[in-house]
Simulated scan of single mutants.
Amino acid sequence: MKPIKSKILLGLALAATAVLAACSGGDDSIDDRVGLSKPSVRVIHAITAGPNVDVLQNGTKTSLQNIPYKTVSGYFDVATGSNLFAFNLTGTATQIGATTVDAHTGHKYTVVALPGTATADVIQIDDPYGKGILSTSARIRGLNASINAQNVDMYLTTPALDLNTVSPTIAGVSYKNAVPPSGQDSIYVDGGTYRLRITTAGTKSVIFDSGALTVARNDDWLITTIPADGFGAVIPNRIKVLVAQSNTSNTTAQELVTQ
């Protein structure tokens, strides 16, 4: 029986390798999918029209220096246990926010600098990454960083679908929180053409409409609402959306405005 078992395991490994080779990019290795990868962190600058910042880890500057709004770092490995991440105004010791990540094997973490009430704020998302070895589904999570739209529902549907006929894809996203929440895996959808519509929570009143957009197989999206007017935004529900995708190198989030 051992030779047969070995052939089965070899076949699964080859199949997994083929699937991952067909991925659209990003940080999505076999180790990630079986939960054996080192803990890793990515950093997102989502402060609408905010200042450039330096990112520090445990008091030491990282390579993420003078990064502008919409920067999404690649995932980078960190040691297990406590890791303090701070955002300083570029070239200064002036800290605008910080958070401590308690890192565990097999988990990915996203640290987001976002617009607060009068100053910046920082939150983190723990993603246990439960994607199956052979899955080609896209992973989706919503984050609300809009102080002027404090509770929203997100609908990711086929473009022509009547919202009155469906429940939200991501429901009840409150300000400075993610859905699925930190510590739970993302939701999974098939690749294809979609339309993102965001409503005030519990209603069908659309406050954001992306129009048609493409979600590719194996994409990994963090959909973040932010105030269209930045700090001090006072017009209710005037928002835009940043889409951050998993990656192995620094990139720029896609900014969506309502169509």
Rank of each mutant, 00 (worst) to 15 (best):
I147K: 05
L163M: 12
T92N: 12
N83K: 05
L161K: 08
K70A: 05
S167Q: 05
S146V: 00
V112L: 14
V257R: 09
N247W: 04
V166K: 07
K2E: 15
I67N: 08
T71G: 09
R42F: 00
T60M: 08
A98G: 05
P159D: 12
D31E: 15
G81P: 12
L134P: 01
I96E: 09
P128N: 13
T200G: 11
I30L: 15
Q65I: 02
N151I: 11
D54K: 06
Y188E: 15
M154T: 00
T80F: 02
V43N: 00
M154S: 04
D190Q: 06
N52E: 10
V206K: 08
V111S: 12
G191R: 00
F87L: 07
T99V: 15
A233K: 02
D153C: 10
Q254F: 10
L222V: 12
Y109E: 11
V43I: 15
T100M: 12
D229S: 15
D162M: 00
A120H: 04
Q254L: 14
V166W: 08
N83S: 12
A16E: 04
G211A: 10
A145G: 15
T136H: 02
V173W: 00
R139Q: 15
T94A: 14
P51R: 06
A120P: 09
I8M: 10
G116E: 07
N144I: 09
I47V: 13
G130M: 01
R238G: 06
N83C: 09
S6M: 03
T48S: 06
A253V: 07
E255Y: 02
S182R: 02
T100A: 13
C23F: 03
V241S: 00
I235R: 07
T158H: 07
N52Y: 03
A138G: 04
V34M: 13
F76V: 11
V111W: 11
L84Q: 11
G232N: 14
T165D: 10
A49S: 14
A244E: 14
L163A: 10
